[in-house]
Design a protein around this nucleic acid. Structure first.
Lengths: 197, 197
DNA sequence: GTTGAATTCAATCAACTGATTGATTGATGA
DNA sequence: TCATCAATCAATCAGTTGATTGAATTCAAC
């Protein structure tokens, strides 16, 4: 008697299933396109069952964003564990961002959607801000290090440079898939724009 | 008897009013937050009157995007009319973008919203694509000119550089207002990243 | 003042939406 | 087997949404 044949599932299991389905819907249809009935249908439960496990649509969003935040934290942890010089680290940051686009194609669109909602949601806003500012600061930090060790040009404004780099990377999230090969040449151009000559 | 006291208005006038109200709502609440009843209320007419003048919500969107397109075309025309070298032109493009953010704070958010919709709307998509690609090409063009006349560094990949610059500029649309002073330092960094040393 | 067309409105429709209610079912432990 | 609690469901609620209908009003021309 496998678990799959059980009609009932524990609340933990259900919440996970519900969050995953909600995430998929948000990525496909945007946050305003999220419908609790659709989420319930995707999980294979009744709408009232969904409400039993997740009190409200608002709680559902919280669930999704919390899982997303964990994913970003994991990503940053991995990169920090590498012992690299600033130039190599910049390349790694950029490469890992590309990996996200390629292998987790739903994470960044999810962040975009939740980021948009965060503009008017006081509970989401600090979470999204923390992720954004955290990421930006990583670039400021490593640009500063690269200047200090002579790898990056002395005229580089680390703060402004970080804005420029982050902007260029984020823009790839919105580009059609067939433009992905250009990512590498943009990555190279970013490197050329900061290295000391 | 001024026009303002007239209850009835010509269809041209109403359509303009309706389009303007719809635009404001889209900017405030996103495209998914656009409600025909709210648009009607803002214009001061009944929902059925709105449908009399604008057949459907879809037509309403068409109206809004068409007006937006015109604004972008005007912008490009103004810049093209200036006789400048590539570096000065790059500075002008960047400066004019900042002017948009400051003086037409609703235009770029509107483009963002309509751009998002365009991903799944075959009628909007070519319009949005035309605006995007047109703008990108302007940067490619002037980066190429700058390389040719020696103002920009010889290692510059114009295509990739344009992606980088556009991305950095667009990112300012999403930043909180208090970060606007950083725009100028990012603009300077963009210039430093491309000029020949 | 009358006429006819344009414009406007209240009421209504059908469908959708987040959420609730109360009955039923499933699972577990004694 | 029985009791209890967790989990599930169909039906329902109140409100929202784009859109329609038919009557009323307004305006311009004669």
């Amino acid at each position: 008697m496998s678990e799959q044949n059980q009609k009932y599932a524990s609340s933990d299991t259900r919440r996970r299933e519900i969050a995953a389905a909600a995430r998929a819907v948000i990525v496909e249809k945007g946050i305003d396109g999220l419908r609790t009935r659709e989420v319930a249908a995707r999980v294979g439960i009744n709408i009232a069952t969904l409400h039993y496990h997740v009190h409200s649509k608002e709680d559902l969003l919280r669930l999704v964003i919390e899982a997303m935040r964990e994913e970003f934290v994991e990503q940053g942890r991995y990169i920090d564990a590498q012992a690299l010089d600033p130039l190599a680290k910049l390349k790694l940051e950029i490469g890992e961002y590309k990996e996200l686009i390629v292998h987790k194609p739903d994470l960044l669109p999810l962040f975009e959607e939740l980021g948009k909602r965060a503009r008017t949601d006081p509970v989401l806003e600090p979470i999204v801000r923390e992720i954004r500012i955290g990421w930006h600061r990583r670039f400021v930090g490593l640009l500063d290090e690269g200047k200090a060790n002579g790898q990056f040009r002395a005229t580089l404004d680390a703060e402004a440079g970080a804005h420029m780099i982050v902007g260029a990377l984020v823009a790839f999230q919105y580009k059609p898939r067939h433009l992905l090969p250009i990512f590498d040449s943009v990555a190279d151009e970013i490197i050329r724009s900061v290295i000391a000559t």
